[in-house]
Design a protein around this nucleic acid. Structure first.
Lengths: 196, 196
DNA sequence: CAAGTTACAAGATTTGAAATCTGTCACCGA
DNA sequence: TCGGTGACAGATTTCAAATCTTGTAACTTG
């Protein structure tokens, strides 16, 4: 007779969802697909996630949280002067997304859909990044490397000025080979503007 | 009997195409629609324009050329110091697009489609704008208001740093009320970076 | 009662045939 | 020969019917 499989917890469902997303892409992946892969009825999935949207947000949040933690290490690295840290951090933001696009295009597309739908997963992530940027700028203001009257406003300005290198709308341009040089040029210009 | 209408020159066709685009939007507007509006067969339109794509490019080019000329006046205005001119010019670029989106959303969408398809109409326009930006920066470098070792590279950096305020991918964000303030903040940061 | 099931309504998506559109042709008239 | 025509093939779009998906509910079981 049927033996009970794994107890089916949220993490198991998330892993299966990632796999289905990778295989079918965000437009074709269904909750029924996920349930079938787990050998359960799709209603069982709804016991753990309120909606398909919630399931996708949970998958995306895992990746974004991982990114946030990776970047936080750079943002808090006191061994690097804030100017270099800012440059390194901005390059890392770009590099993380470039890697995901290359290695996991379907999952990245799912993230893009959420952002386009103004999901809080995306807006919260932006808030996280802005916080890290503010911390770097505050460090620079404290040690005299940067001049600024309002750290948050300056962080916002730097974030907006580098939109081309982190905003999803520009993802297609990140394939172009000159993109890193372009970011470098913008960084240099911005860092000169931040000098006291 | 049928009297000959207007001689049907390229400009007449372009005007009719604009009208059809405005009415139906870029996804539904057809060459047959344009011909019908002019009272001719659609083959007649193909005597003047090689393809539907060419027709749309011609319509869009008229608007972009008008924009270019408007902006050129600002870029060349020697009565304004380059720093203020740069800020004014960047605001004007944004304002022109905001106005078009508001007053002619379908025509703006047609422009967006061409840009997404990497039409030369779009890339040429970017080259025009970069040229104007380079001219402003060169003026500033000459009169000592700006410091730069490579005017073109600096112009590119400024252009990339303000992508959020002119790149079509961000058009949806231009409705937000804070957008002008955000551009101001970025301008201020960039102008400090350009100071000698 | 937590975790699962089957059954089902409402709505979205796919499908496939019919209609329309694009681009080209040979031809026409001034 | 320039500017126009109707007819045409192949690609694209449309639209209604069929199917699949989502989300809920009433029910089962350890």
């Amino acid at each position: 007779m049927e033996q009970k499989r794994t107890p089916l917890d949220a993490d198991t469902i998330l892993a299966a969802t990632e796999e289905i997303l990778r295989r079918h892409g965000p437009d074709k992946a269904t909750v029924v697909d996920v349930a079938r892969a787990l050998g359960v009825s799709h209603a069982a999935v709804y016991k753990h996630f309120a909606s398909k949207q919630a399931l996708r947000e949970a998958v995306t949040r895992r990746w974004l949280d991982h990114n946030r933690d990776t970047l936080a290490v750079i943002a808090a690295d006191q061994g690097m002067p804030p100017a270099r840290r800012l440059r390194t951090w901005l390059h890392a933001v770009l590099a993380l997304k470039q890697t995901k696009i290359r290695e996991d295009p379907e999952l990245f597309a799912a993230y893009g859909n959420l952002a386009a739908a103004h999901s809080t997963v995306a807006t919260d992530h932006v808030a996280d990044l802005l916080g890290q940027l503010t911390a770097i700028i505050a460090d620079g203001a404290r040690d005299g490397g940067f001049h600024t009257s309002d750290e948050e406003a300056t962080a916002r300005a730097v974030f907006h000025a580098t939109a081309k290198f982190h905003h999803l709308a520009h993802a297609a341009e990140w394939r172009e080979p000159g993109i890193d040089t372009e970011l470098d040029e913008v960084c240099t210009l911005l860092l000169e503007g931040l000098q006291p």
